[in-house]
Design a binder for these strands. Sequence first.
DNA 1: TGCCTTACTTAGCTTATCGAAACAATCAGG
DNA 2: CCTGATTGTTTCGATAAGCTAAGTAAGGCA
Lengths: 166, 166
Amino acid sequence: MTQKHPDRVDESLIALRRILRATELYARDLAQAAGVTPAQLRVLQIVGEKKDPTAKTLATQMGVSQATVTALVDKLVARGLVTRLTSSQDRRQTNITLTHEGEAVLEEAPDALQQRYVRAFADLADWEQAQLVSSLERVAAMLNVDSLDAAPVLATGELRTSKKGY
Amino acid sequence: MTQKHPDRVDESLIALRRILRATELYARDLAQAAGVTPAQLRVLQIVGEKKDPTAKTLATQMGVSQATVTALVDKLVARGLVTRLTSSQDRRQTNITLTHEGEAVLEEAPDALQQRYVRAFADLADWEQAQLVSSLERVAAMLNVDSLDAAPVLATGELRTSKKGY
DNA sequence: TGCCTTACTTAGCTTATCGAAACAATCAGG
DNA sequence: CCTGATTGTTTCGATAAGCTAAGTAAGGCA
């Protein structure tokens, strides 16, 4: 296969692996600092992004079963970070909403990794940014991630797009 | 900083998120097909790469505690996929080695995602490969992943973060 | 020898996750 | 309107992964 640089595949895989590992490891620090677990923080983030999502929405968005979402929401409710509201339109549905405490946690969730990334990204020249975006999107396509409206949040909910300007 | 395309940060974050999610979700399929869990497969992979690593090596490589490694290795030993061998040099150390079954599992572990990626990568033009590698490495650097000899293997349990959930 | 350190395991707990079953509300016919 | 099917959610029971703290065993050293 006309491969002049066979090492490159490995190089790219290694780089990918490093990216994955960075976000994975970071998720723990972040969650610990925020006082919630990674999965719980992920729920908070999605609840923050979407408008009072239902359990089903959360489940599909996170790619887990509804039972798992129920368990996670239970813990967050116990901590007073979210509340459940039965929908008035369809009373089978339950909307998950952030409490003030929940918003506070979300707001204060340290996002050092993402901020570092965002800052570094902002420092790049225009064409470099464009190239990076195109490369990343290409890799995502190569991994064949079919339709998935991923939010601009790194990792499994471990990172947030900082609202404070980058 | 004179940011002409503020959307680009989000675009890159979204692409990253998609990459992370793809590998995370894939890890489960892979592990399920291989008959072991993601974390267990990760152990098998590292044991395969390194030369009969110790528990400590595994722990640092995986970024988990030794106790966790012990539990994981216990399960693999119970399944007959690895064996423990007390080192003859330092009898405090235990080398984890693959059994034939373990090698077989590792060998047969379906790696559709990685193969798809590798194939797509190979199809790229030379300069495109180079650019991709450089972009990925740049991103890894921006995430400030300090020295870490990551192996060229995609998809690792992180996404333990999810466990599922991701 | 005696003590500190290192490597690993054990024990007990929490979280995340699933599948299957239970419940509850809605909707579609007749 | 009843009835049955569908949809949304929770409950239940299990398994896996992870941690910390405490225990055991071996090595190093003075």
